[in-house]
């Protein structure tokens, strides 16, 4: 009886997941073992060639470059996000919610539009360069756009809210007791942070970092618009296989490799969150 009620309640959600996640991923997986049709599409001849091609040094180089950019963006997001999350968690309860809403406010407008806004800011004739020239700080405009700097800036800007939210939920669980005890026992603020707060919020740090990393490594809009297509990332490579190279099976193999990496990282994240719950009930 209980079991059947549970089944009824779970059915819509599980059906949704099966229809829109498991089956499409399955289709991608199956297609990655076939040959490309000359004009796009699939020739149903079994091959492992697509996976063999994926470890070609050319594509490995793109993979490593994507990892490097995503890691850099993650590290910067952590450095920017931790103080912000810490600050919010220390506020009186009634002030925390408005601050969190402010953090989430950018999501009210489209990611693409927000990315275009960075072009207005960073380009050679843009607000930042014009401002610096008018103030006499620089004579010739800086190259702020269409490089790795712009890509990383765009990724950090886009995903730092996820970092802050993950860290906030971890930091706010701590409560003031442990910090007070540490101070009473003679530890300074810095030592308290390093020995108490930081280790206990490690699961939140890991969760936030995995969020930002996973979102960054699959992103293709930001490298396209802010990187001037000069830095090919994994997302761009996959996009290109489907939309210009007419090589769906190879695109499917690359997509599946990316999905596998993301699933591993997200499982690690789920495991960390569970462990955190066990530590701080």
């Amino acid at each position: 009886m209980v079991l059947s009620r549970r089944a009824v309640m779970l059915a819509p959600g599980l059906g949704w997941l099966a229809l829109l996640l498991v089956i499409p991923c399955g289709i991608i997986f199956v297609h990655s073992f076939f040959e490309r049709g000359i004009y796009g599409g699939i020739d149903y001849v079994f091959t492992l060639e697509n996976y063999r091609r994926a470890i070609d040094p050319l594509y490995l180089r793109i993979f490593l470059a994507s990892v490097r950019i995503a890691l850099t963006a993650t590290a910067i997001a952590l450095l920017l996000g931790y103080p912000a999350a810490y600050f919010i968690a220390l506020q009186a309860k009634r002030r925390q919610m408005p601050l969190l809403i402010l953090i989430m406010l950018p999501f009210w407008s489209n990611y693409l539009i927000r990315t275009y806004a960075w072009i207005v800011l960073l380009n050679r004739e843009g607000l930042i360069n014009r401002g610096l020239i008018d103030l006499g700080v620089i004579d010739t405009p800086l190259s702020l756009l269409y490089n790795d700097f712009a890509v990383i800036t765009g990724l950090v800007y886009g995903y730092v809210p996820f970092m802050i939210l993950a860290l906030y939920s971890s930091i706010s669980k701590l409560g003031p007791d442990l910090r007070e005890a540490s101070t009473d026992l003679g530890a300074g603020a810095w030592r308290t942070f390093l020995r108490i707060t930081l280790p206990l919020t490690l699961p939140g740090i890991a969760a936030g970092c995995i969020f930002v990393f996973v979102l960054s490594i699959g992103n293709f809009v930001t490298p396209d618009l802010l990187g001037g297509k000069q830095r090919a990332m994994l997302g761009n490579l996959i996009y290109g296989q489907f939309l210009t190279a007419r090589d769906w099976p190879f695109g499917a193999a690359l997509a599946f490799i990316l999905i596998a990496i993301m699933m591993l990282l997200l499982s690690a994240q789920a495991w960390l969150v569970n462990r955190e719950r066990e530590i701080a009930p």
Binding site: I38, Y59, R61, Q230, N236, G240, T244, D247
Partner: peptide
């Protein structure tokens, strides 16, 4: 270019990478 399109696609990827 028919199936030779593959050569162009790979070359363009090499250029952008």
């Amino acid at each position: 270019l028919g199936k030779e399109m593959k050569l162009y696609s790979k070359t363009v990827t090499e250029i952008t990478a």
